[in-house]
Design a protein around this nucleic acid. Structure first.
Length: 572
RNA sequence: CGGAGCGUGGCGCAGCUUGGUAGCGCACUUGACUGGGGGUCAAGAGGUCGCCGGUUCAAAUCCGGCCGCUCCGACCA
């Protein structure tokens, strides 16, 4: 291995973090001189960062290959028609970087490769004998994000590993999926980042079901619902939860005057009842249709669940005048008398008995409004947003919510792409069939950011050995010939044994060198100074350890290998 | 796209309210001293004050427009 000299290293460390950086990982990546921002969500990666990224890629590559996947490369520039074929030109629209070629043909910079891999499949696969297949790629992808943020966490140009599988049927698919799932756990463990696999919404990728691999951290942008007792874990956007008891009432409909009371909280206080004894109406425009959603007063509607239930691609809250246009009275809306086809109701209301609901008349509510007796809905569906404290749907324990970063996402695509794009094969009966697909993504730079976030202290990065840009950071102290020759002896011994070595050969004071060593975070630091050499000793210090230990110069290389090995065992 | 904030040397910031020679710390260059946890002294280099326009004798400073970046939200793998 070549030895890197700090005097020649491209990049510099900063004593203070740039003001734009918020999270620990972003600050450390900037301070250590690993990344430089060019534009919002667009970064350069300097030599140590690039080295780490390649190590991460190599880990991913090994695990993908172990799972039976073959690496390929696909185009980043794609004709827009490809996206029209799958029907995603519009749904993915705003995120697509569009460009025109010289013939005025519209091309896009690929944000992901489901379309192109499905096209590849059409070109290559004819028969069931060619299946199963599993391919992967690690390439730069482009997404014109509405809001890049958090340093490397959400960017517009990034390396993504995507794997795609093709199978003859669901049973065969399950094998590929299980292999990928295991590979994902292996990858994150090898990179030193703890993850939890959670049920997720498949979003713009589509398909039947998906799981996210989440690194739990307060700087995350996803809300994750977790059950501490049974282990249930899901993204809040699709988390299920039990509704608990509702204090529903018996009795006939009864109008009650509620002047100026237009909120659930206000209503509950005014009538001296809990919010959960009320029914809340929320209005949405779902694929252009005004929709009346009803849920128990203490709960909130999960728009994504609502949208998925109605098989829609777009949903937003109705504006105040649109509510009126639909014939509903904001603040006093009642599901009674509304066309059931436009009503979606959450089970929390269906099973509740009599609740207090609007009277569809300014200044009045109704008591004892009961689903089934007084009104009905065409759609009964879970449209509730799980919140911390809600009972777990599986075991009833109180759910918790934590923030997290989505590092990987694996999807059961079914025939979402193979069907519209007419990718087919002939089975053994000569029947034309559509393959079951899966896709499996990992954001590589985001993973590096997570590695730093999960492995740092107040002084700097603490790289896990597996992805460290340098294994050993040599700190020579003093300019004597003794020091120089000892350094030369140690560095060449280490390099010869296959270790990546960084030597701080700068004319800097000890404190500066030590601080930079802590910041850059190589797993092992070797200090070689005149003071130790008088006793024939050099100092070894593992980055996570508080104290250094002295070893004879002659044993330095062997001792270094030993302590690096001990690190591997203790950390995993 | 809605809300908020910020653009002054490589980084962190002051100056702007009340217009008048652009400043501080760190980093950088040279020299001396120093030499095991971000040293000391001396001498330096480096800035179209984001851009365009306006007001004014005079604009970093006041006014207008635009651009960029960050954060919250919407959205999003």
């Amino acid at each position: 291995m070549p030895v890197t000299r700090m005097s020649a290293l491209f990049g510099r460390t900063l004593r203070e973090a740039p003001a734009d950086a918020d999270s620990a990982n972003h600050q450390l990546l900037l301070r250590s001189g690993l990344i430089v921002q060019l534009a919002a969500g667009v970064y350069s990666f300097l030599p140590p960062a690039w080295r780490t990224l390649r190590k991460i890629e190599q880990i991913i590559r090994e695990e993908m290959e172990a799972a039976g996947s073959q690496e390929i490369r696909m185009p980043a520039i794609q004709p827009r028609e490809l996206w029209e074929e799958s029907g995603r030109a519009d749904s993915y629209g705003p995120v697509l970087f569009n460009l025109k070629d010289r013939r005025d043909r519209t091309m896009v910079l690929a944000p992901t490769h489901e379309e192109s891999v499905t096209d590849l499949f059409r070109a290559v696969v004819q028969s069931y004998r060619d299946l199963p297949q599993s391919v992967f790629q690690m390439q730069t992808k482009f997404r014109d994000e509405p809001r890049p943020r958090g340093g490397l966490v959400r960017v517009r140009e990034f390396i993504m590993k995507d794997a795609y599988t093709f199978d003859v049927d669901d049973e065969a698919f399950d094998l590929n999926y299980a292999a990928m799932r295991q590979a994902y756990h292996n990858i994150f463990e090898r990179c030193g980042v703890p993850v939890v696999a959670v049920q997720a919404d498949s979003g713009a990728i589509g398909g039947k079901q998906s799981e996210e691999f989440i690194f739990l951290t307060e700087i995350g942008e996803d809300n994750i619902i977790l059950c501490p007792s049974c282990g249930y874990a899901a993204n809040q956007e699709r988390a299920e939860f039990a509704r608990g008891e509702s204090p529903g009432s018996d009795g006939d409909l009864e109008e009650v005057e509620t002047p100026g009371i237009t909120t659930i909280d206000g209503l509950a206080e005014f009538l001296g009842i809990p919010a959960r004894a009320t029914a809340k109406a929320a209005f949405f425009l779902v694929d252009g249709e005004p929709t009346f959603a009803v849920i128990r007063g203490d709960l909130e509607v999960n728009e994504l669940k609502l949208m998925n239930e109605l098989d829609a691609t777009d949903a937003r809250r109705l504006l105040t005048d649109e509510v009126a246009e639909a014939g509903w009275v904001a603040g006093y809306a009642s599901p009674i008398g509304v066309d059931p086809a436009r009503v979606v109701v959450d089970p929390s209301v269906v099973d509740a008995g009599g609740l207090v609901a609007g009277a569809n008349r300014e200044g009045y509510h109704l008591r004892n409004v009961a689903y089934g007796r007084d009104w009905s809905a065409a759609t009964i569906a879970d449209i509730g947003m799980a919140q911390p404290g809600d009972p777990c749907a599986k075991c009833g324990s109180a759910l918790e919510m934590k923030r997290g970063i989505e590092l990987g996402h694996i999807f059961k695509l079914g025939t979402r792409y193979s069907d519209p794009m007419e990718a087919t094969f002939l089975d053994s009966d000569g029947e034309r069939r559509t393959p079951i697909m899966g896709c499996y993504g990992i954001g590589v730079e985001r993973l590096m950011a997570a590695v730093v976030q999960a492995n740092h202290d107040e002084l700097g990065i603490i790289w896990p050995r597996s992805v460290a840009p340098f294994d050993v950071h040599i700190v020579p102290l003093g300019g004597s010939d003794d020091v120089a020759s000892a350094v030369s002896q140690v560095e060449s011994g280490l390099a010869a044994s296959g270790l990546n070595v960084l030597v701080d050969d700068r004319e800097e004071r000890a404190g500066v060198k030590f601080n930079d060593a802590d910041l850059l975070g190589a797993p092992l630091r070797i200090t070689i100074g005149a003071r130790g050499l008088k006793q024939g000793q050099v100092e070894l210090k593992l980055r996570p350890d508080p104290e250094a230990s002295s070893v004879p110069l002659a044993n330095a290389v062997a001792a270094a290998q030993e302590s690096l090995a001990s690190l591997e065992h203790s950390s995993s």
